[in-house]
Amino acid sequence: MIDLVSDRRDPGSGSHRTARRIHRRPPWPLTVLAGLGVAVFVVPLIGLAGRAPWTDLARLVSSETVVDALWLSLVTSLLSTVLALVLGVPLAWLLARVEFPGRALARAVVTLPMVLPPVVGGAALLFALGRRGLIGGPLYDATGFLLPFSIWGVVVANTFVAMPFLVITVGGALAGLDPGFERAASSLGASPVTVFRRVTLPMIGPAVRAGAVLAWARALGEFGATVTFAGNLQGRTQTLPLAVFVARESDRDTAVAISLVLVAVSMVVLVAMRDRWWVRSL
């Protein structure tokens, strides 16, 4: 930690002290802009807190709708995170380490869900995996299994929007990794799988954790792809963001209460992970 306001009034070292203070004081335009940047995030939260029905909060968040939605949100966001880890880490490794034709295109496609409106993602999922979809159609005809309107549809929608965050984070760490360690390990006779498991993975561990947290947070907040692909039904596909959307139209207090639950859950995890996330990987 740098002490920004170190101000020991030592009369003996006047010029030296001034020089040091000028060097240490952050330039004011940056401070002002950064302050405005903070306001962008803080002001909406204050607005939300200002509308909160604090006295009624316990009753509102313990209603059946909210409890169902919270449970479903936690289960589906965690399942999506696991799926994103299992598929995303190897994918990040492939994109960072293996030269193949069309790699730049593959990278773009993988990160596309980060910029695509989630509703578009949901519609695309429906065309591919829905009852009359490219893969979903034959699957339904053969097995009767249907992703839309089920909890698995929520997990797929969440994974679609959340996995890019993990792939990007892990890919960035892999790109910044000195390949010398991996080369050394394989020159000593380690198989590629062993190199990945014993050398690469431990070194990118913090980035994997950070990516997983980001992906989880994105999955927890997912709305557009979920409602488009998986639908909205309490206890089956209605996650917290969908519950907020439905409640917002009829019962504002409940909507605000659910929003506070979402903010609280997300903040607890992000604060708990802050060291790994900010310091080590970024």
């Binding site: 829905g130 009852r131 009359r132 309107f149 488009t228 639908g231 909205n232 209605q238 959307f245 439905v246």
Partner: peptide, 20 residues
């Protein structure tokens, strides 16, 4: 016995139209 509650009528008719 409902499988989904759509946010507006056009979202609902679109899901019927697509055969979902």
């Amino acid at each position: 016995s409902i499988d989904t509650e759509e946010p507006d009528v056009r979202a609902l008719s679109a899901k019927v139209a697509s055969g979902e």
